[in-house]
């Protein structure tokens, strides 16, 4: 019997080694797998390269991982935000390496890795400082730059519901990078609110098929839902009003 369910977030992040490249889903706080990140902090792996759209918000989740000094490099599109003080401090002190990638190239490089594409040409960033050192080609009169895939050892993703085969459904814009990161890592680990019986997920609503997923763990219903219904009563940080 296939059962990708693990019983705790500690089991879910087991084996993430020092120096690993770890993709972490989320756009800002939406879809950030905070419980998995907390378990990773606890687990203690360091010297990590993190792939995320941002570089942490506030003092929780990815920001807390950075604050622990466990991250040597971050690959992202938009580190500077009103609440990115943890990253800002580390960057100014030279304690973290930054690879800045335009958001669409970041997404497509992740997608390419998961799809077995060796590289692709993108029109994004032509004529900008980010084009320096990149192979350029003209197709049909337009210039493009060679972009290479981004692979990871592990991906930490936040979904909404899963089954034991690892099929994943997402919620609203919390989907963001989850589906592509799930395809691009050696080991994909997904936290969800709830693990349901096989067959309970509508096959038409499964966004990440279980073939891309190695471990799933249930972390309980998010605070703004009750029995699957949106009830609100929280701020953007998910804290009760």
């Amino acid at each position: 019997m296939i059962d990708k369910t693990v019983s705790s977030v500690a089991d879910a992040v087991a084996g993430i080694h020092d120096g690993a490249t770890v993709m972490i889903g989320g756009f800002g706080r939406a879809g950030q797998p905070v419980e998995l990140i907390n378990a990773l902090i606890e687990q203690g792996a360091s010297g990590l390269t993190i792939v995320n759209n941002n570089a942490g918000n506030g003092d929780v989740g990815l920001a807390a991982l950075l604050a622990k000094g466990h991250v040597k490099k971050i690959i992202c599109s938009f580190p500077r935000q009103s609440d990115s003080w943890v990253f800002d401090g580390l960057y100014r002190e030279g304690k973290i390496e930054l690879e800045l990638v335009p958001q669409g190239n970041l997404a497509e490089r992740i997608r390419a890795a998961g799809a077995g594409i060796g590289g692709f040409y993108s029109p994004t960033a032509v004529g900008t400082p980010l084009a320096e050192g990149k192979e350029s080609r003209v197709f049909d009169g337009r210039e493009y730059l060679l972009e290479l895939p981004i692979k990871a050892d592990f991906a930490l993703v936040s979904g909404y519901r899963a089954d034991r085969w690892g099929n994943i459904a997402y919620r609203e814009t919390a989907r963001n990078f989850g589906p592509i990161m799930a395809t691009a890592a050696e080991t994909t680990i997904v936290q969800v609110d709830e693990i349901v019986e096989l067959g309970a997920l509508d096959p038409e609503a499964i966004v990440t098929p279980g073939i891309f997923v190695n471990r799933v763990v249930a972390v309980g219903e998010r605070r703004w839902l009750r029995n699957g219904e949106f009830v609100g009563g929280v701020n953007l940080e998910g804290e009760a009003l």
């Binding site: 599109s77 938009f78 580190p79 958001q103 669409g104």
Partner: peptide, 10 residues
């Protein structure tokens, strides 16, 4: 200055 691009280039 800390650079940030996001989706602007795309």
């Amino acid at each position: 200055a800390i650079p940030a691009i996001g989706g602007a280039m795309d």
